[in-house]
Design a protein around this nucleic acid. Structure first.
Lengths: 239, 239
DNA sequence: CGCCTAGTATGGTCGGACCACATTGTTGTG
DNA sequence: CACAACAATGTGGTCCGACCATACTAGGCG
């Protein structure tokens, strides 16, 4: 039960572990930060081999639900985390690679989610600390000596931060995963520094405009600027 | 390195296979419907054990990128498919289970995506066959003798079909995955037939209204009805 | 007391074995 | 010759047992 992703095959051994863990999560017996029993223990508890247990844990790993670490002590073993965007983005990225999810659709979906988030953010109480943090990020990005990787990283943080202002964890996770899924696509689009510098300058300007609109609680303006921002970047780079 | 999901751990053996397959997908050397080499062949090609190869294939499996089948012949082995919603939904479902993605956020995101799709659909050329198919689905759902499982199945098909009218594969995949991720949550909410019958009746009526609006190319109305439809269902069942 | 070492528990990888299954080829029989 | 029954083959699914690298833990030794 609790499985809607059957592939109409024989019951896989690892499903036992997955179902058990899912049930424990729902009931609250397991929580983020908890350590899972060791693989050898689980294999004994469920009466399956350690290999099958590892299948289940590997799945949870790529889903962004656990992290694993070797060694001993409290920081080792399999530990429950919560990184939905990681799991979603890797899935999306592979499907983009298979060319059944067009990059244009990814971009369009991102615009949809982010503009909604911008609008929704202005219907909620003002989150002063987050806005301050956003301004801080923009200030860091204004440094002309900043490397491209660092810029992308800050850029990512900025967009994620804005999307969290809407207070919808699903939208934030999906938006971030969309962004991650086409990140190296973007990285490869602009290759030289000569191409990059003017782009970065434009992005800085756009970012400030967006944040200003949000600070002024003008959701419609923020949404419009954000949409144009994303749209512009992709027509600019993916030509 | 075509890998943005590193967990900052030692290089996993299965990454070799994943990267190779991802590269082959991007370059077009692999396409949907193709058969992957056997696990034993892959393990030899990449110089890793079959167990590690199986890790990679298992990951692709849960992502909805391949299906596996035992036996011999053209329909056996590991075959490339494209089912993004399956991979996304299983990830979402587990994260919902961990209670870090509230069901309310899922519903809100679904409303966002579906209402957008309804609006976007009316800005595109009329897809007569799909609308006819949608009407057909509603007609089937009108049968009062229909079982609940069958109703849910047709319901699902109806919503997915509508979302495809917008012509954005990513939005469709995400919308379907959101739906799947909370499907058994819904199934458990309404338990008895006495509870179910009036709900089904209301859903039928709402569906017809939505389709009528779409057929009349009134995107705003369709979006509004669709939003109310989803909202109503969840406030009705998840009380 | 403090440093160093042996012990222990953990996931990561490997190789090999066997099973269930589906197709294909072969053989025996009518 | 036709065809059914059987054997061979190739596939993923599972299991077992072993060994490794790592990271913490507990003692022993200076």
């Amino acid at each position: 039960m609790t499985d809607t992703t059957d592939r109409a095959a024989g019951p896989r051994a690892y499903q036992a572990v997955l179902s058990s863990i899912e049930a424990d999560l729902r009931s609250g017996r397991l929580n983020i930060g908890d350590r899972l029993p060791g693989e050898r223990t689980l294999s004994e508890q469920h009466g399956i081999s350690r290999a099958s247990v590892r299948d289940a844990i590997r799945i949870l790993d790529v889903m962004g639900l656990v992290r694993t670490a070797t060694g001993s002590g409290p920081n080792s073993g399999t530990i429950l985390i919560s990184d939905p965007a990681a799991g979603l983005s890797s899935t999306l990225r592979l499907h983009v690679a298979s060319r059944h999810l067009p990059v244009a659709d990814i971009v369009q979906a991102r615009i949809l989610l982010e503009t909604w988030a911008a609008t929704a953010a202005t219907t909620r109480p003002i989150d002063e600390p987050s806005l301050a943090r956003a301004a801080e990020l923009l200030a860091l990005m204004d440094d002309p000596a900043l490397g491209r990787e660092a810029f992308h990283d800050l850029d990512s943080q900025f967009h994620v931060l804005l999307s969290t202002l809407a207070g919808n964890a699903v939208v934030s996770a999906m938006m971030e995963s969309l962004r991650l899924s086409i990140m190296d696509y973007v990285r490869h689009a602009v290759t030289t520094d000569e191409q990059w510098q003017p782009v970065a300058q434009a992005l800085r300007h756009q970012h400030h405009g967006i944040l200003d609109a949000l600070t002024a609680r003008d959701g419609d303006l923020a949404a419009r600027l954000l949409g144009e921002h994303i749209e512009w970047f992709f027509t600019e780079t993916a030509r």
